[in-house]
Amino acid sequence: MHQAVVSEWGQTPRYTEVPDLAAPTPQEVRIKVIAAGVHRVVRSRAAGKHYSSGSLPHVPGVDGIGMTEDGEMVYFVSFAAGSLSEYVNLPKHAIKPLPAGTDPIQAAGMTNPALSSWMAFHSRTTNLPVDFTVLIVGATSASGRVACSIARSLGAKRVIGVARNKAALETIGLDETIVIADQIDHTDFSSVGDVDIILDYVYGPVTAHLFQSLASKRPVQYVHIGSLSGQDIMVPGSILRSKNLTIRGSGSGAWSMQDASKNVEGLLKAVQAIPEQPIRVAKLEDVEQVWNEAMTDRLVFTM
């Protein structure tokens, strides 16, 4: 069988013939991989820059869509085995049935990005009011775009998106948009008003300015998810004293993989309802040509 293999951290994965897998154990299921996405975490692991990168040789990929030997279409999680492979043997608990009618390419490309907002809502927020308002910082990122749909599926009435690209913001179906100014402290957050939750994929100076500008009369639950614009901010004590603001993070340390597994079936149903997203599709055999040229695309490999 064939896999994409990284033999040196940061190296472009090579399309490599490897020995067939051993027979699955009674606790495992063999999956014929159909499609697997190259998410941000996948690239970070393949570069050796992620805490879960493991050891070399490394097979990229953390999840995918496949078919069991019984002919069932499934979504699977495969941090240890990778997913850019023709076949994987996985524990039964790492596999969930794919809802009927789901596009496997869309599911392979969007389930992982959707997980960030899904788990933020389900594990890092509490007692959100009916018809809540959410502010998504980094709304034009792959995860930010689907966060809009996830928020609406969970009861958001007002969704506000923040990003640099005004034209891209207008394609997402937001209720309001805020464009990040070239000089960040000129960004106008005055229209935000009352907001219940902030999902932040950007962090850095944008978030520092948002905290300074926040004027919500309601309690605000802020959830840090990504750091596209910086790893650090300074939060003056006056902000914490003067605003009803709860600060949390969401990631695989803030919730466990067991927590995520319990939420996957609901997530897959939500992903099925997300409007079709732009995805670059390539064959696994072309991984060496496509891996770097598609850096800005949502990339899915088919086997």
Rank of each mutant, 00 (worst) to 15 (best):
A167C: 01
V134Y: 04
A139E: 12
T25A: 12
T140E: 11
I225Q: 12
H58N: 09
S261G: 01
V134K: 02
N244P: 12
A282I: 05
V6E: 04
M257N: 03
I136W: 05
L210M: 11
T12G: 02
G173N: 08
I136K: 11
C148P: 08
Q272W: 01
A36M: 08
V62P: 02
A163M: 01
L56N: 12
S153L: 03
T140F: 12
A22I: 11
V300A: 07
A282K: 03
L169Y: 13
S153F: 00
P99F: 10
L284S: 03
S238D: 11
V220P: 08
P24T: 06
N165D: 08
P13M: 07
S153A: 09
N165E: 00
T102I: 04
V223K: 11
N244H: 15
V88T: 14
G48D: 00
G82R: 13
T111V: 13
T68P: 14
S116Q: 06
I95S: 13
S242N: 13
D182I: 00
S190H: 06
V33L: 13
C148F: 04
H58V: 03
K283M: 02
E176A: 06
R152G: 02
Q183G: 01
L21E: 03
G161D: 04
C148N: 15
G48Q: 08
G10T: 02
H2V: 12
Q106Y: 02
N165Y: 13
P97E: 11
P57S: 10
V137N: 15
L90W: 15
L214N: 13
L115N: 04
L299S: 08
D259K: 08
V134N: 05
